[in-house]
Nucleic acid binder design. Structure first.
Lengths: 116, 116
DNA sequence: TTGCATAGGGATAAAATTTTCCCTATTGTG
DNA sequence: CACAATAGGGAAAATTTTATCCCTATGCAA
């Protein structure tokens, strides 16, 4: 997500959405932020398999892409809260469509993924 | 997509769908196959930025995940055709939702992606 | 005083993914 | 004959992404 040797393709809507949603944890971050888990430490606890570092980085990218806003409270210990922008909220139905399809086909998916 | 050192997370629908859709070109492959471009060489021409090799590999994964079927015609030169399974077709509305959101927000997405 | 929680970042290591290059094989065309 | 088109695969390099480790800083609790 920084200097690239291989140029981006941004030909169609799928390329564009892919660019902001790719990243191992981004969709989950959006989802959990929407559920009200706004602080980085909360998100970390909701996604324990992700390293703290990558969550920080991907939150920054979501912010750069205007899907979330970041509010820093000038207190000690530090307090930060992320919220979805309107733009980010408009993605929720799309994420829900993804999650629903996955849920509806859970058993079959588990089979085909694990049989490999 | 073979031996992994870091174990998979398959906790929710999002994890599951992610596992079958991740891959730089998979969504496009599904889309173009649905549009009737069934032969590997056609798909390669529709997706010129992808290496031939990776399209082969990702088509194989789509087949393993039962999203497409592969038909081999015993002719020379070789002829192969991929088609969506019913399972694969059930993904089309989800892909359409992704593409539509990208199309609807094309200008803004292009801005936020390229400004980085 | 030591340790924990908070948020973040640099540097490097590791892992995963994709690209590149080189092979297989057959038939038809120039 | 040389070469293109067809489909595919092994091996290694390149690229990208993620994980690990170590550091900053402050206030509170035991």
């Amino acid at each position: 997500m920084k200097d690239r040797k291989i140029p981006l393709n941004l030909n169609c809507g799928l390329d564009l959405i892919g660019e902001v949603l790719y990243g191992k944890w981004k969709i989950r971050l959006l989802w959990f932020i929407n559920e009200g888990h706004k602080r980085p430490s909360e998100l970390q606890r909701k996604i324990p398999d992700a390293s703290r570092r990558v969550l920080t980085i991907q939150l920054k990218e979501l912010e750069d892409h205007e899907l979330v806003t970041k509010k820093i409270y000038p207190v000690v210990p530090p307090k930060v809260e992320y919220s979805l922008t309107e733009f980010g909220k408009s993605l929720l139905p799309v994420i829900a469509a993804l999650g629903n399809w996955g849920d509806e086909n859970e058993e079959r998916l588990r089979n085909v993924i694990l049989k490999g």
